[in-house]
Amino acid sequence: MFEARLVQSAILKKVLEAIKDLLTEATFDCSDSGIQLQAMDNAHVSLVSLNLRSDGFDKYRCDRNLSMGMNLGNMTKIMKCAGAEDTVTMKAQDNADVVAFMFESKNQEKVSDYEMKLMNLDQEHLGIPETDYSCIVKMPSQEFARICRDLSQFGESMAISCTKEGVKFSSAGDIGSANIKLAQTANVDAEEEAVVIEMQEPVSLTFACRYLNSFTKATPLSAQVQLSMSADVPLVVEYKIGELGHIRYYLAPKIED
């Protein structure tokens, strides 16, 4: 028996928005420790890694490990039926071929039950080693989304260069070029407005704007985003999901031959 309850269904809606741009279907692996999802986009250029800890749920029970393959378009249809203030409970029996979603309004005046068929998906998990990154940039998530959107107008790729002075985003194409430099903030009142750079070595890498823009669909989940970079390894873009967990995106760089 699996059961997971979240008082704020809005969080699950936002998680789904954050992954459905990159993935059409995915397997939710449920265990005693929580819900995990790891999947690559079709082109195997980016990877989504979602971790929702069991202790972050308002109620959580998972007697046996369970892998639930879901069509994310169909899951989105169902989650759209939940009111923003509703509580959501996901339930499945052991070895079930369906998952149930129950939405309850405040005071339980309205209770809606939906069932969705599960799918058997071929899973290709990647082993991602613990990495000490040369540069870790923490910045407001809205600022990152804005930069990705703005630079996408200039070219398909954007370079991210990090030094101890700051982080520079640049793009170039037919219409011209764009450069945005962010300095580390000296002192800010609100922690989420800060730009913080931890640098061991300067790094400059180039990435496809299309994927970065997809990652920014997670912006509503967190006020801050963390970019981790090292020479010649994929970029990691991480959004914390409150006390519940995190979503990480991995993106392979582009190289010039």
């Binding site: 980016s46 998990h125 990647l126 082993g127 080693p129 496809a208 392979a252 582009k254 190289i255 010039e256």
Partner: peptide, 14 residues
């Protein structure tokens, strides 16, 4: 020429 690399060029399929 700019080449888009893939994740499997960095990580092993577990």
């Amino acid at each position: 020429i700019v080449t888009q690399l893939r994740l499997c060029q960095y990580y092993i399929v577990a």
